[in-house]
Design a protein around this nucleic acid. Structure first.
Lengths: 208, 208
DNA sequence: ACCTGAACACCGTTCAAGT
DNA sequence: ACCTGAACACCGTTCAAGT
């Protein structure tokens, strides 16, 4: 005798994300999510074929919160891309414990592809096309992904904290010196500063 | 009655890496590594305090194979940075299954810090210092990390294969079109093309 | 059709013991 | 000091059964 599904896929994703946000990524398991939702562990398999699919659902949920609409307030295409990068960063950083999952599954996510589509539109509008546009999208995607992760693993000031502080200053003169100036650079300046380097490189002539 | 250690830390790392290379990252466990080395699972705890430390050892082993010496053949500082990035990419890609570990632990690795030290030296020599140098290192680090991961997760042509092919072309006009030109762009052009964008942005005046 | 419970083959790690 | 073996509290997933 058919019973109605008690959950939507989004509720499942939200339950899993609640476990991650509260207890950390290591605590994520079919069993803990089932408990969070008041089901038996095997009940989840009605919604998802394995753990990997549960993870994809979580990422879809996180990236689904990112506004993929073309920014209208910005005056230049560079600014529009900065806004897109900032939105993605904000959405991902809102669930720091999920970052490894987000990075891992981002490229299979529909919401992630919507972000890429909008960025491609902005690049096209800027007169970038063909192979140059492919390289530009990949570079932006790679930078944003890597920068968010690095920020999560610890700022350079933090990278210094544990590892660099214990470093033989003689063997690492530049690193120890840079670690000192790193304290003045906040995460926003770091993220958008690096992004602007990329955009500036993109702006010049088609290259030699 | 004291017995000599039967293993070096490097042999332990090599054993773990052998498991990863042969059977994938999911197969890595204290038990499988112990079996690989002909020990009981608990024997490993003489060398390493937990699984996390075993992972760090693996990453140290992988990054330890990367030549961190300043390149001497290159004629420009940009070329020297390209060589450094290429060496890191080659070293990491040699163990594709270990990439998630490499990314995760890279910032705590001594060999990783040696790479950063050399890159900082090249940047300094190029006249980049202070906060600009901090931002430059982080941007390079972020880009290289992200680009290697993206390459491992699948090229844009591959990102297209599964996901983009199944995409409603109407809703994703740029993405479907770009996926077509993506086939012409090989992984090297993609990696170094993006890197050169960054370097070109770095080369201009100190910025507005 | 939706969900449960027992069972299987795994984990990382603690603890007590062997040489 | 180095290593082992049993045990504990976990995993993901299969399979048979309940409503």
């Amino acid at each position: 005798m058919p019973r109605p599904r008690s959950l939507t896929q989004d509720q499942l994703a939200a339950g899993a994300l609640a476990v991650i946000d509260r207890d950390g990524l290591a605590a994520l398991s079919m069993r803990t999510v089932a408990k969070e939702l008041g089901m038996s562990p095997m009940g989840l398999y009605r919604y998802v074929s394995d753990r990997d699919e549960l993870e994809e659902l979580v990422v879809e949920h996180v990236l689904g919160s990112v506004d993929a609409g073309t920014p209208t307030t910005a005056t230049s295409w560079q600014e529009r891309i900065e806004i897109m990068a900032g939105r993605l960063r904000d959405g991902v950083i809102a669930h720091p414990e999920a970052i490894p999952l987000t990075v891992l599954h981002r490229h299979r996510s529909l919401a992630g592809l919507r972000w890429s589509e909008t960025v491609l539109g902005i690049l096209t509008e800027a007169g970038i096309d063909g192979r140059r546009r492919v390289v530009a999208l990949r570079a932006l995607h790679g930078y944003v992904t890597g920068a968010i992760q690095l920020e999560h693993l610890g700022p350079l000031a933090g990278e210094g904290t544990a590892a660099i502080a214990a470093l033989p200053a003689a063997g690492f003169p530049h690193l120890t010196e840079t670690a000192r100036s790193a304290g003045e650079v906040g995460p926003d300046e770091e993220f958008f500063g690096g992004l602007r380097l990329l955009l500036r490189g993109l702006t010049g002539e088609p290259s030699p």
